[in-house]
């Protein structure tokens, strides 16, 4: 877990200028701080109504060793229980095989669906590249298949998010350990990943062509993570999340 230092808020004509000013103030390099964009600012019309960009820089006192490539795997994107909620359950149990984890996850999911009077089959699938998390073992992926299952997805995937959260929580409670379980409905997440990847690439091209940043619509955490991952190795653009809570959005801007 990272420790954080005292953060500073700085202004500048552009986001990049504000970041540079903040880094100078702290005497740190870009990779030693976490950047939160509070306001992108605006140029105004002929300088009238121009507003400064504002950013908050938080020094990372003890950065996680050797993983500068993986900032998008931060716990912000974790939609399961928090580590402390599991740790509170007592001593860690021995690790189970993926088959065993799958059995427990299936049972929990089946238990919930049955009590929601939903008739469906549960099929296990291999994880997609976006479901993998660095060096962690690959998640168990369960796809719910049947007819009229749109209600299980919900607006912006909200219902599916709740279902996955509860299944993970039950699995963690039963096993006294941390396992990543992904729940999907009729391959919805896989399709959404492809859509988001195409969107991210299209928007990145636009940012390069116009030299102007683009802010995508608000997205749930795992969808923002997909956009960040899709553009992680892009030579010309980089991404940040801005805004709070349900209103959090991905901004794509030029690398400097």
């Amino acid at each position: 877990m990272e420790k954080r230092g005292e953060s500073v808020e700085v202004r500048g004509k552009t986001v990049e200028e504000a970041i540079a000013a903040g880094l100078a103030q702290l005497g740190l390099r870009r990779e030693q701080v976490e950047v939160e964009i509070l306001s992108q600012g605006s140029r105004g019309l002929l300088g009238i109504g121009a507003e400064d960009a504002r950013v908050r820089l938080t020094p990372i006192v003890e950065a996680a060793p050797a993983e500068p490539q993986e900032p998008v795997l931060s716990e912000e994107y974790w939609e399961g229980p928090e580590e402390e909620e599991v740790r509170a359950e007592g001593p860690k149990a021995p690790a189970l095989s993926p088959k065993e984890v799958e059995r427990i996850a299936r049972e929990a999911l089946q238990g919930i669906l049955q009590r929601m009077s939903i008739q469906a089959r549960i099929v296990s699938k291999p994880p997609t590249e976006f479901m993998l998390e660095g060096d962690n073992p690959p998640p168990v992926v369960l796809d719910i298949q049947g007819r009229d299952l749109g209600v299980l997805i919900g607006r912006r995937g909200e219902t599916l998010g709740a279902l996955q959260f509860l299944v993970r929580l039950i699995v963690n409670h039963r096993t006294r350990r941390w396992y990543n379980v992904v729940i999907d409905v009729q391959g919805y997440k896989e399709r959404r990943e492809q859509q988001l990847r195409r969107l991210a690439e299209r928007m990145a091209e636009q940012v390069v062509a116009t030299r102007r940043s683009v802010v995508l619509e608000a997205m749930p955490p795992y969808e923002r993570r997909i956009v960040h991952l899709a553009l992680r190795n892009h030579p010309k653009v980089t991404t940040h999340s801005i805004g709070e809570g349900d209103n959090r959005k991905v901004m794509i801007h030029l690398r400097q």
Partner: peptide
């Protein structure tokens, strides 16, 4: 749950 996350997830399923 933390910030009511568990209760809210249950509510979301109940709404269905």
């Amino acid at each position: 749950g933390k910030n009511g996350r568990v209760a809210n997830a249950i509510r979301t399923l109940l709404k269905v």
